[in-house]
Simulated assay, not measured.
Amino acid sequence: MLVSERIGQFFVESDSGRDRLEYTEYGSGDAWVVLLPAELVPRRMQQPLAHALAAEGMHVVTLDPLGHGRSDRPADPHAYSVTEYAEQVVALLDHLGAAQAVVGGTSLGANVALETAVIAPERVRGLVVEAPILDNGVEAGILVFGPLLLAARFLPHSVSLLRRLTRPVPRGVVPFWAGVALDACDQRADALAALLHGLFFGRAAPASKERRRISVPALVVGHPFDPVRPLGDAVTLADELPKGTFVRASSALEWRLTPERLDRAAVGLVAGCWKTPRRRRRTGV
Score class of each variant (00 low, 15 high):
Thr83Glu: 14
Thr83Cys: 02
Cys185Pro: 01
Pro42Ser: 13
Ala110Asn: 09
Arg44Ile: 08
Pro147Asp: 07
Val33Ala: 13
Ala50Val: 04
Ala91Gly: 10
Leu253Phe: 14
Arg18Ala: 09
Leu165Gly: 00
Gly244Trp: 01
Leu195Trp: 00
Leu148Asp: 07
Gly179Cys: 12
His223Gly: 03
Pro217Glu: 12
Pro74Gln: 11
Pro65Leu: 12
Gly69Trp: 08
Phe176Cys: 09
Phe225Cys: 03
Arg73Ser: 15
Leu155Met: 13
Ser71Pro: 00
Arg203Pro: 02
Arg123Lys: 09
Ala31Leu: 06
Thr116Cys: 15
Ala193Gly: 10
Ser16Arg: 07
Arg203Gln: 11
Arg123Ala: 09
Ala249Asn: 02
Gly232Leu: 06
Leu162Tyr: 02
Ala75Phe: 05
Asp72Val: 10
Arg280Cys: 01
Val41Pro: 07
Leu165Trp: 05
Leu199Ala: 04
Leu257Phe: 08
Val180Ser: 08
Gln187Lys: 05
Pro242His: 07
Ser71Asp: 02
Ala55Val: 00
Leu192Trp: 04
Ile214Ser: 07
Arg44Asn: 09
Leu21His: 05
Gly222Ser: 10
Ala238Lys: 03
Gly69Arg: 11
Gly97Val: 03
Pro242Gly: 10
Glu39Ile: 15
Ala238Arg: 02
Phe10Tyr: 15
Leu2Gly: 05
Asp30Gln: 14
Val216Thr: 14
Pro224Asp: 07
Arg280Lys: 07
Arg123Val: 02
Asp30Tyr: 04
Leu2Thr: 14
Ala252Ile: 10
Arg229Pro: 03
Ala189Cys: 02
Arg123Met: 06
Val174Gln: 10
Leu93Trp: 04
Cys185Val: 00
Val138Ala: 14
Val247Tyr: 13
Arg123Gln: 03
Leu155Phe: 15
Leu192Lys: 02
Ala31Phe: 01
Asp183Ile: 00
Met58His: 14
Ala38Glu: 09
Pro65Gly: 09
Arg212Phe: 01
Val174Asp: 11
Leu127Trp: 12
Gly97Tyr: 01
Pro224Gln: 06
Leu150Cys: 01
Gly146Cys: 06
Arg167Cys: 03
Ala38Arg: 06
Val60Tyr: 02
Pro77Arg: 09
Phe145Gln: 06
Thr258Arg: 14
Phe154Gln: 05
Arg125Asn: 08
Phe154Trp: 14
Val103Pro: 00
Arg261Trp: 14
Leu93Asn: 06
Leu192Asn: 04
